[in-house]
Each structure stands twice: as C-alpha cells, then as structure tokens.
C-alpha cells in the first residue's frame, strides 16, 4: 500500500515538474530551459534536500521508464511522415549519418581512453549522439550506467545546439540538408527541435538523421567498442 502511494507521488510529481518546465520553455526558448534539463535538476534537488533515495523515487519512476520502449517505436511515425524526403535523399542522409555515427563512437572512446576515463564511464558515453531511450539500452548492454548515458545524451543535445552555428561555419556547411543531418546526427531530438525552428526541410532532414542514427549506432556500437577496448 505504502509503495503505491510513494509510486503515485513520484509519478504525479514528475508530471507536474515536467509540465511546469514545459510551459517555461515555451516562454523562454533556450537549450538551458529544456524540460529534460531543468526538470531533472529540480527532481535531483528535491531528492537531495529531502534525503530521498533514487530507488524510492524509482518505485514510481519505473512506471514512466516502462514507456521508453514504446517511445522508441513511436519514432517510426515522424520517419513515416518524412518518407518522401527519405526516399528522395536516402543515400546522402544515410552516408552522412553513418559516417557521423562512426566518428561519434570512435572519437568518444579514443578521447576518453586517452584521458584515462574509467571503463564503465566510456561505455556510458559511446552512444551519446542518439536519443535517450535507445542510448541507455546500448550503454546498458555494453556495461555502462544508464543514468550516466542519459546525462551524456542530454549534454550532447544541449552542447550541439549551442555550437551548431560555429560548426556550420567552420565546416562550411551551408546546405539545408547538410545542416539538418549534422544537427540530427549529433544532437538527436534536442537538435531536431532547434533545426525545426529554422525551417521544415532542415527539421525533416534532422528527424530522418536522428532516427537512422539510432538504428545505425545500436548496430555498430557493440562491434566498434569490442574492437577498440
């Protein structure tokens, strides 16, 4: 009985925090006001201040976690909506996304190894360029920590949005498809939301890149990591 009450409190609390942050983000459209970022910080602070264990919070949190799998399945819908673009530019988008996936995995592993980062942290970092629910499953299967993976994904998303203008300039990416694929491959849904603000075509390219990237990374990450570590 007690667990049901705790669970419900955790779920309702998470929903309220999320909705509040979502409204705030609609007023102040900045990467640092993203509900996933501010919302997670608020809940972490609540747990720390009231000395609540993560395990206790997860009595309810686990119910929300249950929906991560279907959330990934749902991504088929935006991909389906972009089927014309997918058909027309399948090869360019696939090539960009594939090379990006390889670069993301390898650069992450190499930099972390070079700096002497602990192995379980490296495993949590490998899939940072793909959307959270896929990334945490990949990290878990490699031997990483899911919450760390979730945080690295969030950081990749936020950093990506902040640096995108400089990267486009430095790499001379001025084509709308190139920009969309770049931001979608590196910064998943957070990047895609940003790309959509600039226009529908870039947003569509970013959506396709984000979804393809999730598929590609989940296949090649275990292979590359085994080879590199």
């Amino acid at each position: 009985m007690n667990n049901i009450v705790i669970g419900l409190l955790a779920i309702i609390g998470t929903l309220i925090v999320y909705l509040f942050m979502w409204k705030l983000h609609r007023r102040i459209l900045l990467p640092v006001t993203l509900p996933i970022f501010l919302g997670s910080i608020v809940i972490v602070l609540i747990l720390l201040i009231f000395h609540i264990d993560y395990d206790t919070y997860m009595i309810g949190g686990e119910w929300i976690n249950q929906l991560l799998g279907p959330a990934v399945v749902a991504l088929a819908y935006p991909l389906y909506q972009q089927r014309d673009l997918l058909k027309r530019l399948f090869f360019p988008i696939l090539m960009g996304t594939f090379v990006g996936a390889v670069v993301g995995i390898m650069s992450g592993v190499l930099l972390a190894k070079w700096l002497g980062v602990e192995e379980f942290i490296i495993y949590s970092l490998v899939s940072k360029s793909v959307t959270t629910p896929v990334s945490i499953v990949i990290a878990d299967s490699l031997g990483g920590a899911m919450p760390l993976a979730a945080v690295f994904v969030m950081l990749a998303g936020m950093c990506g949005v902040l640096i995108a203008p400089f990267i486009f300039k430095a790499f001379k990416i001025d084509h709308v498809i190139g920009r969309g694929v770049g931001i979608g491959s590196a910064s998943h849904a957070i990047g895609t939301a940003r790309a959509m603000e600039d226009g529908p075509l870039g947003g569509s390219a970013s959506t396709v890149a984000m979804v393809l990237s999730a598929i590609i990374v989940s296949i090649i990450a275990p292979i590359l990591v085994e080879w590199m570590i």
Partner: peptide
C-alpha cells in the same frame, strides 16, 4: 567528461553535415 562530449559532438555534427552535403 563534458569536454569530451563537446568535442565529439562537434566532430559528429561537422563531419556528418559535410558528408551528406557533398552527396
């Protein structure tokens, strides 16, 4: 760790963008 993520993200964005743009 944050710097690793930043550098790696920059590389992914730049290179995947350049490759798809070229194609």
């Amino acid at each position: 760790l944050i710097i690793i993520v930043l550098i790696s993200t920059a590389l992914v964005m730049g290179i995947s963008g350049v490759v798809s743009q070229w194609f």
